[in-house]
Design a protein around this nucleic acid. Structure first.
Lengths: 214, 214
DNA sequence: GTCTATAGAGGGATAGAC
DNA sequence: GTCTATCCCTCTATAGAC
């Protein structure tokens, strides 16, 4: 790949991270990439196409680089810790923030919507297979709809990323609260067999069961 | 309040909802409000000030109108149902979507950041006092940091609102999954006294305890 | 492939008539 | 309070020199 293309892809991610979707324009991206503005159109055709290319590449790279850590998580608490680390690491690299910005811009731009859905699906798939593995032997699985839960977690994560922008201390508090709560699932998983059977029966009597995936 | 001010405040919310933060300009707002563009500056000074005024008013109105329903919720499941209804009702009225857009724009605009923080705090305060009431007698309160949890819930809600924009079916699935999961907390709350004591002891041995509010 | 220059639209904001 | 007209800026995208 040419040097200019590389610089433009990186500059686009940096611009989305630092200035938000509303502040991302051809001129600003070109300045960030230290490249002539006209080259955006020569190499990518339009600003929208450049954003699309940059986001797809960045999301694929990030998900792949985090895959071993997803695979290594052995509890919901660890998955959450992974999420928190990802959140903090990315404050400089910034791909989750970027995804949040693209998601916000998706409301009035069908192209951004497609980009956002694609990138988000990569993360959701990863979360889903992790949850699948973690919860297979848990009594909690009886009331958990893994597909839906993975989507909820991804969406929540995006929300926390945006919230961080206006209240960093509050966002830290939110993460800490979730971490405390994850202790609950560990307790449930560690129940002795008798306790598990009792819980399972209790769940069956109360819950309508997980939603059927279509 | 003058008719023009009223139309501009409403037109601003409608514009943020329909066109996103990146598509919200003085000209578009004025067209939506059916008012001359120059009147924005006469009445509000700047577009940023208008957005700020509109968002603060809308958030205050919304939170107030939902307050009785927050007070009426008697379980986490009901709080979640309330959230889901709010989500669906607002697809037309649109104030949570608006908040998400302002939050996204906050990244490169300090004024929007202040607006977003103020509006979000109104919702967080409401969620916090509801959680406080709901969880006072629950053994779960031992591992729950209510302040942080309220922030996490509000942020997650914003994320779901944005996710709805690119994958409505996925967002519905996410809500359904959370609803199923809320059954767990009800089970824990309904434990017989002996079971509660056992759970409580188990929590004490595992958890570092809730974070200290500062 | 890279540059300058510019077209043409839309942006915030103001002046001044009414 | 409301309007028109306008200034000056930034935006995307292209034309054309190199």
């Amino acid at each position: 790949m040419s040097d200019t293309r590389r610089k433009l892809l990186d500059g686009t991610i940096a611009t989305l991270r630092d200035r938000g979707i509303a502040g991302t324009s051809a001129r600003v991206i070109a300045a960030s990439a230290a490249v002539n503005q006209a080259l955006i159109f020569y190499h990518f055709g339009s600003v929208g196409d450049l954003i699309d290319a940059a986001c797809r590449e960045a999301a694929a790279d990030q998900v792949q680089s985090y895959r071993p850590r997803f695979r290594a998580a052995v509890s919901l608490g660890e998955l959450l810790t992974l999420g928190q680390e990802l959140h903090e690491t990315q404050r400089s690299a910034g791909n989750v923030t970027v995804l949040a910005q693209v998601l916000a811009g998706a409301r009035h731009d069908p192209q951004l919507a497609a980009t956002a859905k694609h990138a988000l699906t990569l993360w959701i798939t990863e979360i889903e297979s992790t949850l699948d593995r973690l919860m297979r032997d848990s009594p909690v699985a009886e009331v958990a709809d893994i597909q839906g839960l993975a989507r909820a977690i991804a969406a929540a994560f995006i929300g926390l990323e945006l919230y961080e922008g206006v209240d960093p201390a509050g966002a830290r508090g939110a993460f800490a609260a979730l971490q405390h709560l994850s202790v609950l699932t560990e307790i449930l998983d560690d129940l002795p067999p008798a306790g598990r059977r009792a819980l399972r029966g209790r769940i069956r009597r109360t819950s309508p069961g997980p939603a059927q995936p279509k």
